[in-house]
Design a protein around this nucleic acid. Structure first.
Lengths: 258, 258
DNA sequence: ACAAAAGTGTTCGATCTACACCCATGT
DNA sequence: ACATGGGTGTAGATCGAACACTTTTGT
């Protein structure tokens, strides 16, 4: 969606290629150097921020749709998106909300009011995590801005999106030990210090630096390599790599949380 | 939906009260005396069975909709339904499927083909469990029959419903120790033998009769009462009751599985 | 007294937690 | 030699798994 014609066509005819009444909203977390952030965007005609979201094509499955939506809205590719919950209910979208009224004015009240987009919508929640320093989100035409917000400074979002953020973060924390979540945040070879910082930051608590590697190695999620990295005037750390197969086994068995 | 007029009206005008393109399908498990069953129903015009499902009213939230749908289709009330996953994708419903073609014939091909019901649909999966000996499912007008099927003799179901059954059973097993699932299957006061049988049957494996009560009591999920029940020519068992508050705490902390 | 079901305790190994010091490197 | 960050081991507590016999009761 990058030209004005495409946008107009989407408002009028989108229901032919997309399934109406159901959307996907993605909570994209960004990690870098002990900081956890959330990607929020502001859409044309809205005062408040929201999660990047969109509609599902009639030819797509849900996971592919989530990937495409994030790519279109933010130009971020290659995310490992995870479905966590579906949200609905008449209170999801408030029609007397100033933002919604504003949106109608921007697009010409009558046109948008009768659009398929304005009908009641149920939303499937997905989350993902990426390295926010490597990724420059680019807004598309519907989006004024998309940016990384500090996780504990997320503003009041549109609709029920604050609730989505809360529940997606819970899901992310629960799944940290049995989905290869950290794999997306690290190079192929990484040091214990690096992965340790990630787990501490995502879980929001400190993890013992002696017990933590034991657990990961015991679970078989990472392997030590016979290499070290030179990091200047300090001891060279060993490098580790992920063992992707073990995640599956861990997932099947179920694993306790830290 | 109990008269023919209501059914016709639903096919033609249902989209005004229900949200199109999205449905709820419920996997209702039934337990009694070491047996685990699944409620399957056969709809008018279909050869194969499916899970009871339906559409969401525009005024409802998702959990309420699931409860209402089960009540309407099967006359089962008071279930504790749990959302576990949402299913989508173009392959969910196959239009060249004999059952679908059959359905069109039954309702008059042209009428049903242009109905809102025949458009592509995404489905939110819910599950619940109840005592199948206490509950007599009653089909409504759209439903020819609904009955309990042995869990390992579930036939080929419509659409992707076999996949739903598989994933809902996984979810049920995972959540057995931290949602009050067994509470629905037992009287207020129950013996250890009774709850033990439930856990063994749902998990599909044997659980040590000495370790099992220790775990439940340690977790605080059940309390021993100062009562016994007379069961004929045998030793009278102690009675226990659930401690509903502890489930919440257990849920927050996360609990390992058996 | 016997049949049928209830109920209980201990040991072992695995795992989790807590805790403090030495190592390697570059300047 | 010192500053900086990297890396390690052990002891105690807790938890989960395995295992067999005694108690109660009605007939």
């Amino acid at each position: 969606m990058n030209t004005l014609e495409e946008l107009e066509d989407f408002i009028e005819n989108g229901y032919k290629t997309y399934i109406p009444h159901i959307s996907i909203d993605c909570a994209i977390f960004g990690y870098h150097d002990h900081q956890l952030k959330l990607l929020i965007s502001r859409l044309k005609g809205f005062d408040r921020f929201c999660l990047p979201g969109g509609y599902i094509k009639r030819t797509e499955n849900l996971d592919d749709a989530a990937t495409r939506i994030v790519e279109e809205r933010t130009a971020i590719t290659g995310l490992y998106l995870q479905q966590y919950k579906t949200f609905g209910g008449p209170e999801r979208i408030k029609w007397n909300d100033p933002d919604t009224i504003n949106l109608m004015k921007v697009h010409g009240y009558e046109k948008i009011r009768s659009s398929w987009l304005m009908d009641q919508t149920i939303s499937i929640g997905y989350y993902a995590i990426t390295d926010f320093s490597l990724v420059k989100p680019q807004p598309d035409l519907m989006t004024i801005t998309c940016e990384w917000s500090d996780i504990d400074k997320v503003p009041d979002l549109l609709f029920d999106h604050n609730k989505m953020v809360k529940e997606s973060l819970q899901a992310l924390r629960l799944q940290l030990y049995y989905y290869p979540i950290a794999e997306k945040l690290l190079p192929k070879k990484f040091s214990l210090t690096e992965i340790h910082a990630i787990y501490e930051t995502i879980l929001g608590k400190t993890l013992d630096m002696r017990n933590f590697p034991k657990k990961l190695i015991f679970l078989g999620l990472i392997n030590r390599l016979n290499e070290k990295r030179n990091i200047g005037p300090h001891r060279a750390p060993y490098l580790y790599s992920f063992n992707a197969k073990k995640y599956k086994k861990a997932l099947e068995k179920g694993i306790t949380l830290g």
